[in-house]
């Protein structure tokens, strides 16, 4: 097993202000090589962290000490202090696109969208990431979800219209099945996998045992990513082409509401005050949606904002329902 050499470089004082009064929201500007720091109380940008090339996704480490950002073209993982946005260290990792910790907090799966590979790392907060399995994938592995017991990880293959299942213990491919056009976000819900289909107008409900599509649920054109609501009752689906967000009842998977959200909605985070933060890929902003009224405000950030993280006291929001 190959251990990736760590390059632990101390941050170079890139963020001038290190003490923010309010918790921060982190917005990854994929096409302007930066991370916008936004005051969660005022919704105003308060700082910007430069990165090397192209940050896409962000996740909080299980112990909460760091948030990890993948810089795909820069081939780096950045470890940031979630309170200040300060870069604490950098680690050389090839093509880190999507990154997600397993429910048990011991593994981190990183998809290499350009490299057509899925890397499963073991995580240690002192030494960082150690490569555990490297699994070749078909074209463009993008989003991931885990089985609730962390025994398997499911990866959408955007360029080949398929979903693959990998055993996290052995790195073996359990199955690799066609699920629909341009699959993106994946979510485990009540014993089924929900997969957003960018090339279609809804999500596929997939059997995690064999990858077979059990049924389709229409949400909107360009269904992209899926998120559980903080109260665990709802699932929000961003429909990139339609410019909408569909809300599904988690138990029945019926669409209960649609919001008109312009600008290419992508990722969603939930603020403690109930506001939904939504990145707008085409409109270069973050939109703040009041789910009660459907009204929203927005703030400009960098170019093509993608991944999003809010430093709230709650643990990383749920990514799987048994």
């Amino acid at each position: 097993m190959k251990t990736v050499r760590l390059s632990l470089v101390l941050a170079m004082g890139l963020v001038p202000a290190l003490g923010f009064a309010q918790p921060l929201g982190f917005v990854l500007n994929s096409d302007s090589a930066s991370i916008s720091l936004i005051d969660m109380a005022t919704h105003r940008p308060v700082g910007e962290v430069p990165v090397l090339r192209q940050p896409h996704h962000i996740t909080r480490a299980p112990d909460g000490r760091f948030v990890l950002v993948g810089d795909t073209v820069g081939n780096q993982i950045l470890y940031l202090d979630p309170r200040t946005g300060r870069v604490v260290r950098r680690q050389t990792i090839s093509d880190p696109y999507q990154l997600m910790f397993s429910p048990d907090g011991r593994l981190l799966t990183i998809t290499g969208l350009a490299r057509n590979q899925v890397d499963i790392y073991r995580y240690d907060d002192r030494t960082g990431l150690t490569l555990w399995h490297r699994v070749p994938a078909r074209s463009m592995p993008s989003h991931t979800a885990y089985a609730p017991d962390s025994s398997a990880v499911y990866v959408s293959l955007q360029g080949s219209n398929r979903l693959m299942a990998i055993a996290t213990g052995t790195g073996a491919v359990l199955w690799d099945a066609r699920v629909g056009e341009t699959p993106a976000g994946v979510l485990w819900n009540d014993g089924a996998l929900l997969v957003g289909l960018m090339g279609q107008d809804g999500i596929a409900v997939v059997d995690p045992a064999d990858g077979q599509v059990r049924r389709m649920i229409k949400t909107g054109r360009g269904a992209h990513n899926l998120f559980f609501s903080p109260d665990d009752r709802l699932i929000y689906v961003t429909n990139r082409v339609a410019g909408t967000i569909s809300v599904l009842d988690r138990a029945t998977l019926r669409v209960v509401r649609d919001y008109r959200v312009p600008g290419g909605p992508d990722d969603i985070e939930f603020a403690p005050d109930g506001t939904l933060w939504i990145t707008q890929r085409f409109d270069h902003g973050v939109l703040f949606l009041d789910p009660e009224t459907g009204r929203f405000s927005r703030v400009d950030v960098g170019r093509s904002p993608h991944g999003l993280f809010l430093n709230t006291d709650q643990t990383t929001h749920r990514t799987a329902f048994p």
Binding site: G264, F282, D283
Partner: peptide, 20 residues
Amino acid sequence: AGYLQEHVVVPILWQLGWMK
């Protein structure tokens, strides 16, 4: 560019099945 992407380019890609 964002307007073009949202209202012209991406809808065309979607119709053509080229969303990747």
